[in-house]
Write a protein that binds this DNA or RNA. Sequence first.
DNA 1: CGCGAATGTGACCGGGTGGTCATAGTGACT
DNA 2: AGTCACTATGACCACCCGGTCACATTCGCG
Lengths: 213, 213
Amino acid sequence: MPRLTWHNLDAERRRRVLDAAMAEFGRHGYSGGSLNVIAREAGVAKGSLFQYFDDKFDFFAHVAEQTSLRVYAAMEPYLQAPGDGETFLDHFGGLVDVWIAYMADHPLERAVTAATNLEIDPEVRQAVRGPVHRLYAQGVRPILQGAVDAGELSPTTDVDALLSLLVLLLPHLALAPFEPGLDSALPLYGTSGRIRSERARRLVDTLLSGVIA
Amino acid sequence: MPRLTWHNLDAERRRRVLDAAMAEFGRHGYSGGSLNVIAREAGVAKGSLFQYFDDKFDFFAHVAEQTSLRVYAAMEPYLQAPGDGETFLDHFGGLVDVWIAYMADHPLERAVTAATNLEIDPEVRQAVRGPVHRLYAQGVRPILQGAVDAGELSPTTDVDALLSLLVLLLPHLALAPFEPGLDSALPLYGTSGRIRSERARRLVDTLLSGVIA
DNA sequence: CGCGAATGTGACCGGGTGGTCATAGTGACT
DNA sequence: AGTCACTATGACCACCCGGTCACATTCGCG
């Protein structure tokens, strides 16, 4: 947990530190990210960072948490129940579109999301991704369950498993089109960002149509 | 590329080095993996490693390549065209089962596969995953295309996109059941390895049924 | 202003890193 | 036995890391 000092901080200074941290951790992940670099880029002494946070992990965890909260806040308006006459596929597809569009417009958030999902240390990974996954599961689950209850999804649908799969898939769909280095060997990422985004959306449509009643 | 010395090496010594490297890189990834640790665990001087490989990256790339070749070799017998009267879903589902079972039995290969997929540095990632993805795309593509040609998959199927998705998904399906720390917040990974394996298989069935003609 | 609390700072610490190299083995062939 | 190409070794190097701490600076308040 961030120290009290962090909350008392001048907003501009806090923003500079957070931005520098998102950029550095987003590029090199938790263990690879350098506090020296973050301090330098933020225009702040390294010692200051330890006034704000207990240690590197506390710092990273806060950066990851804030990032996921921002992203989730952007998604929340679209997590409502589907409008009248709106099919499940339209509703959920729109959600995927919003997600991809948000990541396209926010490279810092996108990079931190990637770094979080690519973390290899089990303890760090669990501590950082756990809350995020719970957040998303809580947001998306009602949509799936609602579609099952309304007879739009097959009654035999394994909601939990489908949920896991979608939460697992979302980062890939959002990241792939904009980080060409990540998976350029796969055709999904072969062309321009725009085309790839459309392809990602089409893919979700195709796959989800399998569970539609 | 490994130096000549590596190939001339006594097989037992080569095995010890490779095993130690798989364990270390599998646990901590490329940048986090320590050559000191690998040398110590292999019972070999650190200097020797630099007689075998140009540098750390060359070493890691070789470990990743050998691992993927082993895994692919285990899968190859199952990449044939489906038998008479065998549906696409049976055929492909069997492939997923083999994949998961192999990973269950080979923790070293599994860990290296995970580390490779979780690598964050774009250059390393591209260099290491590119060949692997090409290998798998080449193996799996004919199966999908064959199913489309035979009318088993919808003729509107985006084979390339579906291929990308499956290659992206496979590591997750294989890893999740056995690395509880990775994604314990998701229901897919909530219970025993056996149950989770069955669930992963069921999930693939459900999703793929969407593209079946 | 003056004082005390809170915050900022960067030199410094122990330790680990990838990589080098002079030296010492090793073994095959004359 | 002598020679020579090849291989093994670990002390050593420069560098960077996360984290600390004694001290300087700033701020809020009487």
